[in-house]
């Protein structure tokens, strides 16, 4: 299955390896940051929603 790259094995595999690592890294960081932000926003929105009903009582 693996093509015979001859004397260019290091060059071809090095280039492909570096490119795939960089692409996978970008995708992983993007997904991780997205998940972290979604969680932080959900927590903040829950806090804001919990505080909202208390305000009219305080006013009374």
């Amino acid at each position: 299955m693996m093509p015979d790259l001859g004397k260019y094995t290091v060059a071809v595999l090095g280039a492909w390896g570096a490119a795939l690592v960089l692409l996978a890294g970008l995708l992983a960081v993007t997904l991780w940051q997205g998940a972290r932000m979604r969680k932080a926003l959900a927590l903040a929105e829950a806090r804001a929603a919990a505080e909202r009903p208390r305000k009219p009582e305080q006013a009374e």
Binding site: T30, L31, Q33, G34, M37, R38, A40, L41, A44, E45, R47, A48
Partner: peptide
Amino acid sequence: LRTRMLIRARRLSVLQARE
């Protein structure tokens, strides 16, 4: 994906400022 994350970050900073 990143634009959605940045929009959420903007919302979060508004909520944190209100808090």
